[in-house]
């Protein structure tokens, strides 16, 4: 593992997580230690079952480790209440999912605005923020359209805009290109890198898509729940 010189936004120390599968206990993550700093573009890669998504869930406070600790900007997540973790996810994290996970009854604009509203901002502010982000991802003209009328690529753009709604420090993306065709996947990845650079946001991907790995500035490889390698890439594939 390589450590970063910058102050870590997130740190996982000796983190382990197992799941029960019938009678069997299946270890998903074993004694993982990892730090994530600001403005990183990290790909966590590995074969299926290597623990990529589990690690992402632990870092994103969607799940809690059985052992070890996850710290967010120095705070031990184990000491946080459920509400405090919700608030941290709302204010400091963004999430992009493989299946987009937009709220079907909300328009594109409302989906992006939802986290802003959750943070207590008024309608004028969340509308302005949503439109600004939709413009940034090239979907301003689709603001009033419901997700079921958008293409896969458009939905993922809306999901990216939603993830950035509350100006997070880190966006977690779990296989964000898995449901997209090759061209759209490239566009989405370039958009994410561009947004990350422009908005000084770290992106952490769980992926086995080589296109993601090719664009990453840091690649963490997992094997059987352990970090096999943690490599910084000096010249990743440039944005288009």
């Amino acid at each position: 593992m390589q450590s970063t010189n910058r102050t870590p936004l997130l740190s996982a120390r000796s983190v382990s997580k197992s799941y029960r599968l019938g009678e069997a206990i299946v270890p998903a993550i074993r004694d993982v230690t990892l730090e994530i700093g600001p403005e990183e573009f990290i790909a966590i890669q590995g074969p299926s079952g290597s623990g990529k998504t589990t690690l992402l869930n632990l870092l994103g406070l969607l799940d809690m480790p059985d052992a070890g600790e996850v710290r967010v900007e120095g705070q031990d997540s184990a000491r946080l209440s459920e509400n405090a973790k919700s608030d941290l996810r709302r204010d400091r994290f963004g999430f992009v999912f493989q299946t987009f996970n937009l709220i079907p009854v909300l328009s594109a604009e409302e989906n992006v605005a939802y986290p802003v509203g959750l943070a207590g901002k008024g309608p004028a502010e969340w509308r302005a923020r949503a439109l600004e982000l939709l413009s940034a991802v090239g979907l301003a003209e689709k603001a009033g359209v419901r997700p079921d009328l958008l293409s896969g690529g458009q939905r993922q753009r809306v999901a990216i805009a939603r993830a950035l709604a509350n100006r997070p420090a880190v966006v977690f993306a779990d296989e964000p290109t898995a449901n997209l065709d090759s061209k759209t996947a490239d566009e989405i990845l370039d958009l994410m890198r561009k947004m990350g650079e422009e908005r000084e946001v770290s992106f952490v991907f769980a992926t086995h898509d080589p296109r993601v790995v090719a664009r990453a500035r840091r690649v963490v490889s997992l094997q059987d729940g352990r970090i096999e390698s943690d490599t910084r890439v000096m010249t990743p594939t440039p944005s288009r």
Partner: peptide, 8 residues
């Protein structure tokens, strides 16, 4: 999804 993006 709603819980992940910060709904209490």
């Amino acid at each position: 999804t709603l819980r992940a993006i910060g709904t209490r």
